[in-house]
Amino acid sequence: MSSRRDFLGEVWRWTGAALSVLGLGVVWKSLAAKGESREVDLPSDLVQRLSGDGGQGIAVGPLFLTGTPSAPKALSLECTHLGCRVAPLPSGAFACPCHGSRFDSEGRATSGPARRPLARAVLEKRGDRWIARI
């Protein structure tokens, strides 16, 4: 009788230990997970509209496109301070509405609490489409 109780106790202990390890694993995995990169499909008609002469770029969802139709460039519009959406200014610079950070046309932080530059998306041509990865 007692050995049966001992056995059940062991089962409980091992089950508890296994579940704890599993739980820790799940927590660890969620904490260690790198931010997933997102892909943004860039409509080809928009890319064709790029003038490449230093004129206005084009905002497409979370990105700002500049460059030429054959060699477009894309900056993320996510502020590197706390993640608000920055607004492109007529001067080519960017302003964050949340705490007033400013970025130059290359995305470098010039004033305000943001220290890091705006992220540059990796662009890839697939067939006749451009895909941006951020």
Partner: peptide, 16 residues
């Protein structure tokens, strides 16, 4: 966005 960014800055537990 600010709330999310601020909470995410808590070490370890922030993003979840």
């Amino acid at each position: 966005d600010v709330w999310r960014g601020m909470t995410s800055s808590i070490p370890g537990a922030g993003p979840p």
